[in-house]
Amino acid sequence: MYTEVSEYYGKTLQGSEDLKTDACCTDTDLPAHVKTNLSNIHDEVLARYYGCGLVAPQVLEGARILDLGSGSGRDVYALAQEVGEHGAVVGVDMTDEQLEIANRHIEYHRDKFGYAKANTEFHKGYIEKLDELDLEPASFDVVISNCVINLSPDKESVLKQVWNLLKPGGEMYFSDVYSDRRVPMELTKDPVLYGECLSGALYWNDFLTLAKGAGFVDPRLVDDRPLAIDNAEIEAKISPINFFSATYRLFKIEDLDSSCEDYGQAVIYKGNIPLHADRFVLDTHHSIEKGRVFPVCRNTFRMLGESRFAEYFEFIGNGENHFGIFPDCGELMPFSSVQSNSASTKTDSSSCC
């Protein structure tokens, strides 16, 4: 599929308006500072970007970021403004036409951002073969991707390569397309369905299995939405499969628990992250209000304490005592007597999940 995907994004598509679905789009309701960043990007780069939204986690100042499937470079140049002159953003793409545009405007953006030297670079390569590129292992704070991994023929390799490139405590923060069942093999051979980010989509449960196998033991869902398929021909081909766009964050932290375990720990958000003064959102189950003692499982405690977020939190508890599965975390003991009484054992203090 390398040739088909490269031709679809290098020659067939000339702009986002040529896409037949909204599968390649993340949330279009962008914050004001992101809109400002995008307004600083060269028109040609914007015109050849196939998607919408921006995949960007919190706290990026000074970070080193890798963008998988960077295309014309729009997200690279947007995030180059977030990391600042002392950070760096590296893009990887396999499409010559896209890379030509991205590289052509490196100096334009350096000058536009007022930097003494460029903090962006682009490499030609395949995202499942990152070890073939001149990228130092354990050198990135964040790896992002915006609806690209579904296009890879070897998604397991992508995740393993990312694990190797992330620093300890670093994270992969990415948006992609998932299905509610495994896509039939015959559909994966359709170049339009594949190029539209549909037939290459992973069944959501297979994704979780691959992520855990690559070392990302506790994938965290940040947001999701069902995809709208407004093309009758495409809808007829893929029915009855349902597709979803979802953003996940995967932390490179060794020896996380396989389940949400309660060690009597909690965190307090100090509220000093720019643009997130009142609340820090880690994922769909962790929206942490400033100043509140927020009970968390050991995995969440470590994700916050062993990452770039540590300085923004106070940490409570030494983790010496284990109290079992965190209440309301989606898992119960398998014993029938416990399950029948589970409703009466729930507590209001169970904030983790």
Rank of each mutant, 00 (worst) to 15 (best):
T3K: 13
T3Q: 12
Y8R: 12
Y9S: 12
K11P: 05
K11M: 07
S16A: 15
S16T: 15
T21Q: 14
T28A: 11
L30R: 14
N40C: 12
V45G: 03
Y49T: 14
G53W: 06
V55G: 03
P57L: 01
V59C: 04
D67H: 00
L68V: 02
V76A: 01
A78M: 11
L79I: 07
A80E: 09
A80L: 09
E82T: 07
G84T: 10
E85A: 15
V89C: 04
E97P: 03
L99H: 01
E107L: 07
E128K: 01
L130I: 12
D134N: 13
L135N: 05
A138Q: 14
S152L: 02
V158R: 02
V162E: 01
F174N: 05
D176H: 07
R181Y: 03
P184G: 14
D190G: 01
L198T: 00
W204E: 07
T209L: 07
P219F: 06
L227D: 06
A236I: 03
A236C: 10
I241H: 07
N242I: 03
F243Y: 15
T247W: 00
T247K: 08
F251G: 00
I253F: 01
D255R: 15
S258W: 06
D262F: 01
D262A: 05
V267I: 09
K270Y: 08
R279E: 15
F280R: 02
H286E: 04
V293I: 15
P295K: 05
C297E: 08
R298T: 11
R302D: 01
R308S: 13
R308L: 10
A310H: 14
A310V: 08
N321C: 04
N321I: 11
G324L: 10
I325K: 09
F326A: 13
D328A: 14
D328P: 01
M333P: 02
F335K: 12
V338Q: 05
Q339T: 11
N341Q: 13
C352T: 03
